[in-house]
């Protein structure tokens, strides 16, 4: 048996984890077909790995204790109640600006709807009814081009497949310098990400309009409004994955 390829322990585990090169993995697969001891070891290690997921995986599906969420909320409140001096100035400036903007806005449009949210909801509606319109693409590569054409080379289309959502369509809205990206999950639920240039302020808001959740997340450069009919928890998970996935490597 000296002509058999030597398999180190490290290689065996890399094989089990799918981290070995295709050629070397094929060697081990072939070898395990006539080496019963090797096949037994592989099966046993795989069973141990699967046992970890079987035993502890469901823990991650349980609702988290309310005390944890309260701790986070309390910390958030404390930071709101006792802001730094710099933050107080920033808040004062924002409030002054908000008063002026609200007054102007109410004259222009007598509605209490947030303009960023209103634009995103209108874009989502347009995007869902105009799936075959010009400028609509449905592959990640094409969607990246659309996003980068409008928003710059540092932005990319987030991959949400980890959470079961795949790209359905990306729709360029050059007149608004915005892009709408729709994703669908296995049950055909739609999650929309509306991307546009930021007005320059940081913002995070979670809103609810009927059954629709809206998450507004923006920094100084990019504004992302995420919309879907889902629980707050699901929106948080999707919004986090989407926001983190917007940055091109």
């Amino acid at each position: 048996m000296s002509d058999r390829p030597q398999i180190t322990d490290e290689e065996l585990h890399a094989y089990i984890d799918g981290e070995l090169s295709r050629v070397r993995a094929a060697d081990i697969t072939a070898l395990a077909q006539y080496d019963r001891e090797l096949a037994r070891k592989i099966a046993a290690f795989r069973a141990d790995k699967a046992r970890l997921v079987e035993l502890y995986g469901p823990v991650g599906e349980r609702p988290v204790p309310a005390a944890w969420l309260h701790t986070i909320e309390r910390a958030q409140r404390r930071s709101t109640i006792w802001p730094s001096r710099q933050t107080i100035y920033a808040i004062a400036a924002s409030l002054a600006l908000m008063v002026v903007s609200m007054a102007t806005y109410k004259i222009i449009k007598p509605s209490d709807e947030d303009p960023t949210v209103a634009q995103a909801l209108a874009a989502r509606h347009e995007s869902l009814v105009m799936t075959d319109a010009a400028g609509t693409v449905s592959t990640m590569e094409a969607a990246n081009h659309v996003v980068q054409d409008i928003l710059g080379p540092t932005i990319k289309t987030p991959d949400l497949s980890k959470l079961g959502y795949t790209l359905a369509a990306a729709h360029a809205m050059p007149e608004r310098k915005a892009v709408t990206i729709d994703y669908r999950d296995g049950q055909n639920h739609v999650f929309t990400v509306y991307l546009s240039h930021s007005p320059g302020t940081e913002r995070f808001d979670m809103l609810k309009r009927g059954a629709t959740r809206i998450c507004v997340w923006q920094d100084e450069e990019l504004s992302a409004v995420m919309v879907g009919e889902m629980s707050a928890g699901e929106m948080l998970r999707l919004a986090t994955l989407a926001y983190a996935g917007l940055t091109a490597a």
Binding site: A75, Q76, S79, F204, Q218, L236, A239
Partner: peptide
């Protein structure tokens, strides 16, 4: 403030 909110989310 924006980062803090993003962080807590």
């Amino acid at each position: 403030a924006g980062h803090r909110d993003a962080f807590t989310v």
